[in-house]
C-alpha cells in the first residue's frame, strides 16, 4: 500500500520539479519580445504622454521649451477657432470612415451570405475571393497615387468626361464631397474582400441543421438571414466593426497621398493622423502632437478593451463547450 502511494507520488513531485526546472526558459523565450516592446513601444508612449504636458516646439531654427504647461495643449487642441481643432479632424476622419464602411459591411454581408448559401451553390468562389481580397494587399500609397493619376484634371476619367459631355473637366479634388468620396471608395475597395472572408468564416461556423430546421418550418430565405444568420454572427460583426473603426481612426496613407498632404480643400479631408504627421514632421510642435496622440490613444484603448472582451468571451465560450463535452 505504502509503496503504491509512493509510486503515485513520485511522478507528481518529479513533474513539479520539471516545471520549476523549465520555468526560466519561459522567461528567456519571451525576453526579446518584451524588451523590444518596452524600448520601442512602451517607452515612446510614456514620452508621448510626457510631451503632451509641455510647451515644446521649433520656431525657425531654435527650440522653444520644454516648459511645463499642464493641460494647455489639450485646451489648445479643442480650440474651435482653429481649422485644425480635434473635433473637425475627428469629424473628417469619421465621415470618410462611415462612407466607406457602410457599403463595405452591406456588400460583405451579402457576398458572405451568397458564398455560404448551400442552395445557391455558386461556382468560381476561389476566383471571386482571390480577386476581391487582392486590393487589401496593395500598397495604399501607390493605390492612392494611381487613383489620383486616373482622376486628376488631366487623367483618363476627365478625358472621358470631356469627350462625352464636351464640357470642362471635373476637378475631383477641388470639392470636399468628391475628395471624401474617392477616399471612401478606396477604403471600400481595399477592405470589402477582407470583411467578406471574415464574415464567410463566421457563417460557415453556423450549424447547418439550424438553417435546415428553419427551412422545413417554412422560413423564407430573407427570414433565415435576418432572424438566424445575422444574430448568430453578431460577435464577429461587432469585432469587424470595432477593428475597422480603429483602422479608420488611423486613416493616413490614402488621404495624405490623394490630397498631397494638404487635406484639401480647406482642411476638410485632413484626418487625425495626417495632422499628427504634420505636427511631428514639418511643424515640429511636440506639445500639440503629444496631446493629440494621448487623445487618440485613450479612444483606441477604450475600443481595444471591447475587442479584448470579445476575445476573452470567445475563449471562455470555447472552454465551457469543451468542458461540456
Amino acid at each position: 500500500m505504502a509503496q503504491a502511494a509512493n509510486a503515485g507520488n513520485v511522478p507528481v513531485k518529479a513533474r513539479k520539479g520539471q516545471i520549476g526546472k523549465y520555468k526560466k526558459w519561459g522567461y528567456i523565450f519571451m525576453l526579446p519580445f518584451i524588451l523590444v516592446f518596452l524600448v520601442f513601444q512602451a517607452w515612446p508612449l510614456i514620452q508621448t504622454f510626457y510631451y503632451s504636458m509641455f510647451r515644446y516646439f521649433k520656431s525657425g531654427l531654435s527650440w522653444i521649451g520644454p516648459e511645463f504647461v499642464g493641460f494647455d495643449n489639450f485646451v489648445a487642441i479643442f480650440d474651435m477657432s482653429s481649422g485644425n481643432n480635434i473635433l473637425a479632424l475627428t469629424w473628417n476622419t469619421l465621415i470618410m470612415w462611415v462612407l466607406g464602411f457602410v457599403p463595405q459591411i452591406i456588400i460583405s454581408l451579402l457576398f458572405a451570405y451568397w458564398f455560404t448559401n448551400v442552395r445557391l451553390r455558386l461556382r468560381c468562389l476561389g476566383f471571386f475571393k482571390t480577386v476581391m481580397y487582392m486590393p487589401n494587399l496593395i500598397m495604399a500609397s501607390a493605390f492612392a497615387m494611381l487613383i489620383f493619376s486616373i482622376f486628376s484634371d488631366i487623367g483618363p476619367i476627365n478625358e472621358l468626361i470631356k469627350h462625352t459631355t464636351g464640357g470642362e473637366a471635373f476637378r475631383f479634388l477641388s470639392y470636399t464631397g468628391s475628395t471624401m468620396g474617392l477616399v471612401a471608395f478606396m477604403n471600400f475597395i481595399m477592405w470589402f474582400g477582407n470583411t467578406t472572408i471574415l464574415l464567410m468564416a463566421a457563417m460557415m461556423g453556423i450549424n447547418e441543421s439550424v438553417i435546415e430546421a428553419a427551412e422545413i418550418d417554412g422560413a423564407s430565405s430573407s427570414q433565415i438571414f435576418w432572424k438566424i444568420t445575422l444574430p448568430l454572427i453578431r460577435p464577429i460583426l461587432v469585432y469587424v466593426m470595432i477593428t475597422s473603426l480603429i483602422g479608420g481612426l488611423q486613416m493616413f496613407d490614402v488621404p495624405q497621398i490623394l490630397t498631397g498632404g494638404q487635406g484639401g480643400p480647406n482642411n476638410t479631408t485632413k484626418t487625425l493622423i495626417m495632422y499628427l504627421n504634420e505636427q511631428i514632421g514639418t511643424s515640429k510642435n511636440y506639445g500639440m502632437a503629444g496631446a493629440l496622440s494621448v487623445i487618440i490613444f485613450i479612444v483606441c484603448a477604450a475600443l481595444s478593451l471591447v475587442v479584448y472582451y470579445f476575445f476573452a468571451a470567445d475563449r471562455s465560450n470555447k472552454k465551457s463547450k469543451k468542458g461540456g463535452k
Binding site: Y51, F252, S293, V294
Partner: peptide
C-alpha cells in the same frame, strides 16, 4: 511553459494588439 505572470502577459499582449503604433510615434521619433 508554466511561470508566474504568464496569464498577465498573455492578456496584456492581447490587449495591446489593436492599439495603433501611431499613438507613440512622437515618442518613437524623438
Amino acid at each position: 511553459y508554466d511561470f508566474k505572470g504568464k496569464k498577465f502577459i498573455f492578456n496584456f499582449i492581447l490587449l495591446i494588439m489593436t492599439i495603433p503604433t501611431q499613438v507613440s510615434a512622437l515618442g518613437f521619433f524623438s
